[in-house]
Amino acid sequence: METIGQGTFGKVKLAQHVATGEKVAIKIIEKASVTNDTQRNSIQREIRLVQLLHHRHIVKVYNVLEDASTVYFIMEFVAGGELFDYIVENLSLSEWEARIFFRQILSAIDYCHKNSIIHRDLKPENVLIDSNKCVKIIDFGFGNTFHRDKFLSTFCGSPFYAAPEMIAGKRYVGPEVDVWSLGVILYAMVTGSLPFDAPALPDLFKLITNAQYKIPSKLSPDLTDLIRRMLTVDAKRRIKLSEVIKSK
């Protein structure tokens, strides 16, 4: 019916089932646009991951169809739009409303981590809100499985939400980089801005690796403390997701 979004490797179209009238979102990936083995492996991983994940705060993937030239992800259509647009429209969210959304996001990512899956591209553009204010995580194009005794080293996702160890080219296990990105999302919700922002990537990376950001005085002490613990440069000292969930 129309283009409604852009995924990591392809466009997302709104479609309607001819017989039932149900609306769905279809992510369409043209294989010709996938130019190397890394991208091909990423798409195959996404196909595998989305068929494993079943959680109320992760967008449902009904089917994955593939032919010689194209891959189609048939997904539930979430009518409310992106969390990013919601933040922009409201300038910022109250701590009370941000907490409601954030708890839902945490529930979805905790489910992923307990199933040894990391997202690696968490940002407000990849969080949808339905008509009932229910959050849905999308786009596992950079997702991967992880093992506690093994390390990853791929830099992926948006630089504004990337953890310091990622942009420094250091090895990481996985969940800790999602926690950092969640900290940036939380900051963005309650302030309406990004903690780290610069026009040039070298300047942005310097801000991130030194954790140079300001927390507005209007935020409550508990929220300020939580953001600081999530945006801790040393991944070993960074708060664990289980601790974030237990926080006030």
Score class of each variant (00 low, 15 high):
I105D: 01
I109H: 04
A98P: 05
R99Q: 14
C112Y: 01
H119P: 01
D121G: 11
F101V: 02
A98S: 13
H113K: 10
C112N: 02
D110Y: 10
F102Y: 14
P124V: 03
I117N: 03
I100T: 14
S107Q: 05
R120Q: 10
Y111Q: 09
K114F: 06
C112I: 04
N126S: 07
N115G: 10
N115W: 04
E125L: 11
S107N: 13
R103C: 05
I105Q: 01
L128Q: 13
R99L: 09
E125D: 14
F101Y: 15
S116L: 15
I100W: 12
I105E: 03
L106A: 08
I117A: 01
L122I: 14
K123F: 07
C112H: 01
F101C: 06
I129C: 07
D110F: 09
I105K: 00
Y111E: 07
I117S: 03
E125R: 10
K114W: 05
E125Q: 15
K123Y: 07
P124S: 06
K114Q: 15
N126Y: 05
D110N: 14
L122H: 11
R103G: 08
A108D: 06
A98T: 10
R103Y: 00
V127G: 02
N115D: 11
E97T: 14
S116Q: 15
I117Q: 05
R120K: 12
L106D: 04
C112P: 04
R99C: 13
A98V: 08
Q104L: 02
R120D: 03
R99I: 02
H113S: 12
Q104M: 06
A108G: 14
L106I: 07
P124L: 06
I105N: 00
E125M: 12
I109N: 01
L106P: 04
A98Y: 03
N126I: 10
E125V: 10
E125C: 12
S107Y: 01
L128D: 13
K114D: 11
E97Q: 15
Q104D: 02
A98W: 07
P124Q: 04
H119C: 02
L122E: 13
V127R: 01
I118G: 00
D121K: 12
I109L: 08
F101I: 04
R99E: 13
K123R: 09
I109G: 02
H119R: 03
E97S: 09
N126P: 06
F101S: 09
R103D: 00
D121Y: 09
I129P: 05
D110V: 13
H119G: 00
I117L: 06
N126T: 09
H119L: 03
A98N: 08
H119A: 01
H119N: 03
P124I: 03
R99A: 14
L128E: 11
K123A: 10
H119S: 01
S116R: 15
R99Y: 12
L128W: 13
A98I: 07
N115F: 06
I100N: 14
N115V: 11
R120S: 03
D110W: 05
I109T: 12
I117M: 05
E97K: 15
S116T: 12
S107E: 09
L122K: 11
A108V: 08
Y111C: 06
K123G: 10
L106T: 02
F101A: 08
Y111L: 07
C112S: 06
I118Q: 00
R120I: 01
L106R: 03
I118C: 13
I118E: 00
H113V: 04
H113R: 11
A108S: 14
F102N: 09
E125P: 08
I109F: 06
F101T: 04
L106Y: 01
A108Y: 02
